[in-house]
């Protein structure tokens, strides 16, 4: 019986791994295709489609745009999230539960609807479509995430640590800079990197709120209209690589706080 469970487990697990990796393997493999169609048989390896991507100004500028929007919107989200988490964790505010609920509310609404709302609002207010508009939308989706991560890590122990610093004569801004930020650094980094990956990946808000200058997922979407193309494979593989780097950084910041 036990033996049977083991074998069945292995077979099942391998099948699921296969299912999970199948599209990724196909994506990366055919990005190395030397002919013009990313379908069997495999004719590579060749790097011509990566060259094509890197010499495509639209794609490379979209990549820079994406990184820029991700970095700036994440920095904004994590700053606002941290400050509000600190405020809510340390002080009694009237209606605190309700206000915290308000900040985390966007987590429960799909990106499409958040994007739609901003589109309608900006359209009325006469705000033109731009990367800034998309960045604002990315802060809306990432702020609740950063807030939730950081707020959950502000326990009673940290409260005592801050009280000790105040007791020893530190003014409020020194408590913040010398104690709270360093102690909360892992949660702050985690919030930042997670926001980066989500913003980097986000499509629908950018699609609705940008026009000429746009982000990479939207540019890839435009590329898709030309049908199956190894160039799309190449740029997709590059995007995957960047995501993996972000995830590894995220994992490392999580691991780093274990010994503390």
């Amino acid at each position: 019986m036990r033996q049977f469970v083991r074998v069945a487990s292995w077979v099942y697990a391998l099948a699921v791994y296969g299912f999970i990796f199948l599209p990724v393997v196909v994506l990366v493999l055919f990005s190395l295709q030397s002919t013009s169609f990313p379908i069997p048989p495999f004719t590579g390896p060749s790097l011509r489609w990566y060259e094509a991507v890197l010499s495509d100004v639209r794609l490379t500028s979209a990549l820079v745009n994406s990184l820029l929007v991700a970095a700036l919107s994440s920095a904004t989200a994590v700053t606002l999230g941290f400050l509000s988490a600190w405020g809510f964790a340390r002080f009694v505010l009237p209606g605190s539960g309700l206000l915290r609920g308000l900040i985390t509310l966007p987590l429960t609404v799909s990106y499409l609807i958040i994007g739609m709302g901003l589109l309608v609002l900006f359209n009325w207010a006469g705000v033109p479509k731009s990367l800034l508009a998309a960045g604002i939308g990315h802060v809306v989706i990432n702020l609740p995430l950063c807030f939730a991560i950081i707020y959950s890590q502000m326990g009673d122990h940290q409260i005592n640590i801050e009280r000790a610093a105040r007791d020893l004569g530190a003014p409020e801004w020194k408590v913040l800079l010398l104690i709270t930020v360093p102690v909360m650094a892992p949660a702050i980094f985690a919030g930042f990197f997670l926001s980066m990956t989500f913003s980097w990946d986000e499509f629908v808000i950018s699609f609705l709120l940008t026009r000429f200058d746009t982000t990479l997922p939207v540019e890839i979407w435009n590329l898709l209209r030309s049908g199956l193309n190894p160039k799309t494979n190449a740029v997709g593989s590059l995007v995957f690589a960047v995501s993996i780097v972000l995830v590894v950084l995220f994992e490392l910041t999580l691991l780093r706080r274990k010994p503390a």
């Binding site: 122990h157 005592n160 640590i161 009280r163 000790a164 610093a165 105040r166 007791d167 020893l168 004569g169 530190a170 003014p171 104690i179 360093p182 102690v183 650094a185 503390a260």
Partner: peptide, 20 residues
């Protein structure tokens, strides 16, 4: 008077040492 200004200091139950 706030804690910083008074001639008292506190040893906390959980010590509250600055971990970093």
């Amino acid at each position: 008077m706030p804690p910083a200004k008074r001639p008292t200091t506190t040893v906390f139950q959980d010590y509250a040492l600055f971990p970093h």
